[in-house]
Design a protein around this nucleic acid. Structure first.
Length: 448
RNA sequence: GCGGCUGUAGCUCAACGGUAGAGCGCUACCCUGUCACGGUAGAGGUCGUGGGAUCAUCACCCAUCAGCCGCGCCA
């Protein structure tokens, strides 16, 4: 018999069907056994009544067993209906259970809170929890909406390399890898330089790139491998055009997620972000520091980022706020600086619910100015010769920005740690198997 | 790199100077309407590791390892 998805059973009342999935939970009543079965489309209760030939199998079937179940879809008696539950008004009267795979008991609680360590040690299994599934449904929706939005706005997607010959930013710690002929290469810390090159080709481009940072940071907002959603656009007047574009994309993403992921937000118990009717509030760094009564430092501290976001929410009803005009010295070498605006540059950050999730700027497009900046930073223009070609042969004024997907997801769902918003996070102590116990597959081996 | 915290059962956590408990999970049995079913019984821990103080410690002290959090750096 052909498989029916659990989510479609509501329209199959009275029919004999076959479903496939996992045993979410078994409730053995003695003479009869209840189950919740789970597949990608939802949950349904199964009941194995007294006298059913499947009763012996039902009593042996444990949680997480993979099963194919044949049965009759019945409307539940009114007193047994469960409101607000997936398929709460129907149940499957079990005629046969075919065990496709047996399962050990899960080594953690499926409903209760578990620690992040446990969550990640058992990642292949904890992802089966509704809460975790909801997170990555939302993340998938964010990526899709970002892509759709930019395509609609005339952007072309491109693929950036992850193996690069030199470090784009010159600042971030890089992972070195052995390359051919005794050469060294780096894992990309950003698609930035390639993105700019592509701007000279298609004018409007974007990429969703894996990037790698070797910083020894152990915080709730750092991971070693992350996903950057980058776009770059040509023929801009200044960075405000980039900000306007970004704001439009963010609005598209939020409304798409709001539309398609309502169930996920309910599961996680969080509200869709507050978006103001008016444009996102925007402050210069100095204005923000004035509001906070903070000294004129070259950047905002994490605590100040949280405070200014509180301010934006209270004063402007917005979970987003732009901060602009950071000192050029604090930004990457390719950041545009107008002589009248010195020492501030045309860079900006977008803060979301207390955290920087995007950084962008107008870029230098003049070849000589760019070479000069590289030299001023103590770097050798020859190392950037490949990149500089694009500028030597005519580059339009341009700018762009980069959104950290995991941070965006984290804040979208009010998660406490960016690793919760990363399927398989890498950090100083972890790449799937804990680094300190890499010779064993026992997740807890290093804890003994 | 600096500072703080944590490490006790498979998971989440208690307790206590007299060598360990709970909830969930697990096993067995009972239960014809449960829905995180319920009930009864049971298994499961040399309290991260090493040293020290003490008649005695999981508990106090020192060291060490591991992890988490904050700062720095960074996105």
């Amino acid at each position: 018999m052909e498989r029916t998805l659990i989510g479609e059973l509501g329209s199959r009342v009275g029919e004999t069907v076959s479903i496939s999935g996992w045993v979410d939970v078994r409730r053995d009543q003695g003479k009869m056994v209840f189950f919740d079965f789970r597949d990608r489309s939802g949950l349904v209760q199964g009941v194995c009544l007294p006298g059913s030939t499947a009763l012996d199998t039902a009593k042996e079937t444990r949680n997480e067993y993979v099963v194919r179940v044949e049965g009759i879809v019945n409307k539940r008696p009114e007193k047994n209906a469960q409101e607000g539950k997936s398929n709460g008004d129907i149940e499957l009267e079990i005629k046969a259970i075919d065990v496709l795979s047996v399962a050990q008991p899960l080594p953690f609680d499926t409903d209760a809170d578990i620690n992040l360590d446990t969550m990640l040690d058992y990642r292949p299994l904890t992802l089966r929890r509704a809460h975790e599934q909801a997170i990555f449904k939302v993340q998938a929706a964010i990526v899709q909406a970002y892509r759709n939005s930019l395509i609609r706005k005339g952007f072309t997607e491109f693929q950036a390399p992850a193996l690069v010959g030199s470090d784009a930013e010159g600042g971030a710690e890089v992972f070195r890898v052995d390359y051919f002929n005794d050469q060294k290469a780096n894992l990309a810390t950003s698609p930035q330089l390639y993105k700019q090159i592509m701007t000279g080709v298609y004018e409007r481009v974007f990429t969703i790139a894996r990037i790698f940072r070797a910083e020894k940071s152990a915080t709730t907002r750092h991971i070693s491998e992350l996903t950057q959603m980058d776009f770059e656009m040509a023929f801009i007047k200044d960075e405000r055009e980039v900000m306007t574009m970004l704001e439009s994309v963010i609005r598209d993403v939020v409304s798409a997620v709001d539309e398609t992921c309502a169930q996920a937000f309910t599961t996680i118990g969080v509200d869709v972000p507050m978006i103001p009717d008016k444009p996102f509030p925007t402050l210069t760094l100095r204005e923000a520091q004035k509001i906070l009564g903070a000294p004129e430092e070259p950047d905002l501290e994490p605590a100040q980022e949280r405070s200014i976001c509180e301010w934006a929410k209270k004063e402007h009803g917005s979970d987003f706020i732009f901060i602009t005009r950071f000192p050029t010295s604090k930004r990457a070498f390719y950041t545009y600086e107008h002589t009248d605006e010195n020492p501030m540059s045309r860079g900006f950050d977008l803060l979301f619910r207390g955290l920087e999730i995007n950084s962008g700027a107008q870029r230098i497009h003049d070849y000589d100015a760019l070479v000069k900046k590289i030299e001023e930073r103590g770097m050798n223009p020859r190392n950037f010769a490949f990149y500089l070609q694009a500028f030597k042969y005519g580059m339009p004024p341009h700018g762009g920005c980069s959104t950290g997907l995991e941070r965006f997801t984290m804040k979208m769902l009010n998660l406490e740690n960016v690793k919760e918003a990363t399927l398989f996070p890498r950090d100083m102590n972890r790449i799937d198997v804990l680094l300190s116990s890499s010779t064993t597959d026992e997740p807890n081996a290093s804890k003994a």
